[in-house]
Design a protein around this nucleic acid. Structure first.
Length: 389
DNA sequence: AATGCGGGGCG
DNA sequence: CGCCCAGCATT
């Protein structure tokens, strides 16, 4: 069996299979490059079932390049709330604004131009060019690297950037004339539904007969991938601060800095507990944590509270940090006020170890604010469990 | 090349 | 409940 035979067999059988087995997905009902682009950005690191409701809501709110370009960033972030990797939303809007200004609102169809847009890397560029414009460009994501590693028995570590380059070259050679969009989607579809990471369904695979990984009996050991290092643990004390009088029933929230982790998102104020603090189970741990929380919030933000009792625990794992949160109910005493940065908010500028902050914004959160500003899922869950709405 | 950046699903 | 999934930007 010649390698070229294995290649053409793969492409032909895969396309036949896709024609019969492709899922009916919302973004497959259109060739609108803007729609395809939105779906591809949402699908980065995110599974299809999660994306579908976001995709519908996002396009309902921002139906065109123009609409998204002209929207306040705050609304875009809110529409992205819960999807994670929020820089995707920020980059997407920056890119769409560039498309409006420099390309007359038309999503560019050349590799160079589309790749120059913020948040558009090799995968997204190839996906939009092939699916929306049927250009013969590879679109290599994790699915594709897994499928091709198995079929061609590639033992290179897919965690290495150089491996992706090599697989892109291979994928480019596999694209049948005039069928780039369907072929790339077929490759990813196979990875998502048949050639799955664990216990692949080889017996229903359209290319099983010539799959080198299966024939060698090691399909489920491929692809080779070095493991990521485990997230560093952090324990944090969270302040649940209920308003009184005019602010009764509302909770004090803080907007995070414009850059870094969860940029610009809203959250309940919290502080990192030193590793020297006693474990939560230890006697006196809560008393120590509440004292630390009070002192740190005052020093860091000029926020004066009196923690009264532990309310609940929560956990949240990022790829690189693991948060163990303990939420403490607090009595609000006052906030040193600075110039208001956010409409209706209370801003406070304080110096800390890093120098002057760019302005800490606090805001009482009620139903209206919850519907308007974006919070990470972990804080949404805390508020929901506390009965705030 | 290594690291920062969320959230969800599965066995 | 521990483990796995993984594009793009920055450094």
């Amino acid at each position: 069996m010649d390698t070229n035979d294995a290649k053409s067999y793969f492409s032909v059988r895969l396309l036949e299979w896709y024609d019969v087995h492709k899922r009916d997905l919302p973004w497959r009902r259109s060739r609108n490059p803007y729609y395809i682009w939105i779906s591809e950005v949402m699908l980065q690191q995110t599974r299809v079932e999660t994306v579908i409701p976001y995709y519908h809501r996002f396009l309902e709110r921002f139906p065109t390049v123009e609409a998204l370009a002209d929207a306040p960033e705050e609304q875009v972030l809110k529409a992205w709330e819960g999807l994670g990797y929020y820089s995707r939303a920020r980059n997407l809007q920056a890119a769409v604004r560039e498309v409006k200004e420099s390309y007359g609102g038309r999503v560019p169809d050349s590799k160079e131009e589309i790749s120059s847009l913020k948040g558009v890397g090799p995968y997204t560029a190839g996906a939009v060019l092939s699916i929306a414009y049927n250009k013969p460009e590879p679109a290599v994501d994790g699915n594709v690297m897994r499928v091709l590693s198995r079929y061609f028995l590639l033992r290179d570590d897919i965690a290495k950037p150089s491996t992706r380059i090599g697989i892109e070259k291979l994928a480019r050679e596999l694209i049948p004339e005039g069928k780039a969009g369907d072929f790339n989607q077929a490759l990813m579809e196979l990875g998502a539904t048949v050639c799955t990471p664990k216990s692949p369904h080889c017996l229903t695979c359209p290319v099983m007969e010539l799959c080198a990984g299966r024939l060698e009996g090691i399909a489920d050991e491929l692809p080779v991938k070095t493991k990521a290092k485990p997230p560093r643990p952090e324990r944090r004390a969270v302040a649940f601060i209920e308003g009184a009088g005019e602010e009764a029933g509302r909770i004090l929230a803080r907007q995070r800095p414009k850059e870094g982790l969860l940029a610009s998102m809203w959250e309940l104020p919290h502080v990192l507990l030193p590793e020297t603090m006693p474990e939560p189970e230890a006697a006196g741990a809560d008393a120590a944590a509440m004292r630390f929380l009070r002192e740190k919030l005052a020093a860091e933000y000029g926020l004066n509270v009196e923690p009264t009792e532990p309310m609940m625990d929560a956990e949240h794992t990022f790829s690189h940090i693991h948060w163990r949160l303990r939420v403490y109910r607090c009595r609000f005493l006052g906030l040193a006020e600075g110039p208001a940065v956010h409409d209706g908010g209370v801003a406070n500028n304080t110096a800390d170890d890093d120098g002057l902050r760019d302005g800490d914004v606090f805001l009482w959160f009620g139903e209206k604010e919850l519907g308007q500003y974006a919070l990470p899922n972990v804080f949404l869950k805390i508020l929901k469990q506390a009965g705030v709405r």
